[in-house]
Design a protein around this nucleic acid. Structure first.
Length: 564
RNA sequence: GUGCCUGUAGCUCAGCUGGAUAGAGCAACGGACUUCUAAUCCGUAGGCCGAAGGUUCGAAUCCUUUCAGGCAUACCA
């Protein structure tokens, strides 16, 4: 058991359940059965360390006043066991538990013993889970939406690793389909413009307007590769795509690496076409009777995915839809590669598609609830209070690299994970730099650097700060010290809740609270210059703090600087 | 039109499997550096939790209605 809070929780629940059972046996309470007891941490400190509302839940069934029930339960609770020090009844019928400080000192010791494994859980039980995120279109550079999805997806993956899952991080490369056709046309036209002059061909509005396409054309020519001017269009397009696509993918890979994200696997959409898995999947759907021919196209019937509307799998021109490929992709994930669970991160603009995809899982023999969708709102980019459209088409998109140049990797990753994924997010570029100075990531990093500096100085004075001495931990009695220990103890719970809800943004808030508790401690308590026992105890506490901060920042893939 | 998301302090947001007096950061105001990093700390002020009904011991949280904003509703991906 690496989570002391959970241990105490369990102890209280067991104790309360026993008390209720005993009261029923002794006929003090009527036959109400044992309700599911829950324990929570009260907001208000005077309400104890843990609180239980079982008396209020029982009130109706037992036809008794909640406070009276609480009194009965209280009589049957032994007060001299384990961590529980005092129990009292409060408010409408809460049973409040006060625990002794032993658990806080145990926490400090445990953090040091476990080191970077503190917070690691067996919640996931080693189940194979894939997190698929970013999966940006390889037709252009990464943009702000990818920045948010990337920060969120990477954090979810890291949290799940911490929670005990066997995690694979995957990027789905959409290297075929209409957008690649458009990419090809855009490249071809820019190439011809380079050769024959700007006005030689018209560049349509729905082609990719970005400067990167022009650069591809220029670079291709500069590299003295095959002259394509006289070749036929199809050939020209193919060669240009074969030239530019790998460059784009490589740039995406590099950009993400700079952002702290490295995928375990890059999965090609085209490979599904080539391997025959796509045809196989469509064939399977047909055999199951879930497909019909209509208007010269092949449709997945709506009934098979809990929908009013049918969905096209094979278009009337014989080509397969993205939807069909996505089905094949998920069949690959679950059946070929045997993932127990798959988590897809998507911008809300893909919400409808993703939901239909999830609902269509049974049509290819997969249980719906194995697929989790995490949707995040797109980032709305502002400049001078005006919205900038983020499409690649306009070419005005702000790239991930631009963002990182302006505010830095740490600030960006922290910032995007401070808000719940469902929240709308306006990002004002003019405020970007100022925001980064105000970004709480520096508050956290400062706490880390401050501790490192402290330890350095103590070391210089000949104190062995690494030989942590726990013998006097019970000298930590100041409220600031206890508050800090309480925060440190909460880490495993934070990991547990984050992995359960797939909303890991709370970790940024958590680490801010740890940093805040440390800063308060720092201002209230001195380490250097106090008597040896107390100093050793405080060194142990500070060591535990720096360990936890580094631990969380590591999960967030944010640097923990030793100096600032 | 329909579906999903969002609406909480001046600003950015937590809290939403119902719990006790609704929280934090920024901004504002007042304090704290001869002593381990003041990128810090301590304090003050700031709220009809979009609106209206309902459910119950209890609602920011659940239900209904409504208003405002975002996204989606392709033989695009």
């Amino acid at each position: 058991m690496t989570d002391i809070i959970q241990k105490i929780n369990k102890q209280i629940i067991d104790t309360v359940e026993q008390a209720v059972r005993k009261a029923i046996e002794n006929k003090i309470l009527p036959e109400v059965g044992i309700p599911s007891v829950s324990v929570e941490k009260p907001r208000e400190k005077s309400h104890g360390d843990f609180s239980c509302n079982v008396a209020m839940i029982l009130a109706k069934k037992a036809h008794m006043a909640p406070r009276k029930i609480a009194a009965v339960i209280l009589e049957n609770i032994p007060t001299d066991s384990g961590y529980i020090e005092k129990v009292e009844i409060a408010g409408p019928g809460f049973i409040n538990f006060f625990v002794n400080d032993k658990w806080l000192y145990e926490t400090v010791e445990m953090i040091h013993t476990l080191g970077s494994d503190y917070g690691k859980l067996d919640y996931g039980k080693g189940k194979k889970v894939m997190v698929e995120y970013v999966s940006a279109n390889p037709t252009g550079p990464l943009h702000m939406g990818n920045a948010r999805g990337g920060a969120l997806g990477d954090l979810i993956a890291n949290v799940l690793i911490k929670a005990g899952y066997d995690v694979t991080k995957e990027f789905y490369v959409n290297d075929t389909g209409n957008q690649i056709e458009k990419f090809a046309l855009s490249l071809e036209l820019r190439y011809l413009q380079q050769i024959n002059g700007e006005d030689s061909v018209e560049f349509p509005e729905d082609c990719y307007q970005g400067i990167d396409i022009i650069n591809h054309a220029k670079n291709y020519i500069a590299a003295n590769l095959e002259d394509l001017a006289e070749k036929d269009s199809a050939y020209r397009k193919r060669v240009m795509v074969e030239y530019a696509l790998p460059i784009n993918i490589e740039n995406i890979r590099k950009g993400l690496k700079r952002y702290g994200i490295e995928f375990d696997n890059w999965f090609s959409e085209l490979s599904l076409h080539k391997s025959g898995e796509l045809d196989e999947t469509i064939e399977l759907i047909k055999q199951n009777g879930n497909a019909i021919e209509k208007d010269g196209a092949l449709w997945l019937i709506g009934k098979a995915m809990d929908s009013e509307k049918d969905e096209v799998l094979v278009k009337s021109d014989g080509s397969k839809t993205y939807f069909a490929a996505d089905l094949a992709y998920h069949r690959n994930k679950f059946l070929k590669r045997k993932f127990d669970r798959v988590i897809n991160l998507l911008g809300t603009d893909h919400h409808a598609h993703a939901l239909r995809m999830k609902n269509a899982m049974p049509a290819i023999g997969i249980s719906k609830d194995k697929l989790d969708l995490v949707l995040f709102q797109l980032v709305r980019l502002m400049r001078n209070g005006e919205t900038i459209r983020m499409s690649k088409r306009t070419g005005k998109a702000v790239s991930l690299d631009d963002l990182l140049d302006e505010i830095g990797v740490d600030a960006a990753r922290f910032f995007f994970n401070m808000k719940a994924s469902g929240s709308h997010l306006d990002f004002d570029l003019d405020l970007a730099v100022r925001q980064s100075n105000e970004n709480p990531v520096f508050y956290v990093q400062y706490a880390h650097a401050r501790i490192c500096s402290m330890l350095r100085i103590l070391k210089q004075e000949g104190i062995d700060v690494d030989a942590v001495d726990y013998s006097s931990l019970d000298m930590l009695v100041e409220e600031e010290e206890k508050e800090l220990m309480r925060k440190l103890a909460a880490y495993p719970q934070e990991i547990l809740i984050s992995s359960r809800t797939l909303e890991p943004g709370r970790l940024t808030r958590y680490v801010m609270e740890v940093a805040g508790a440390f800063h308060s401690f720092y201002n209230a308590c001195r380490v250097k210059g106090v008597e040896t026992g107390l100093m050793n105890a405080r060194i142990a506490l500070v060591q535990a703090t720096v360990s936890v901060i580094r631990n969380v920042l590591d999960v967030l893939s944010i640097d923990a600087p030793e100096k600032m």
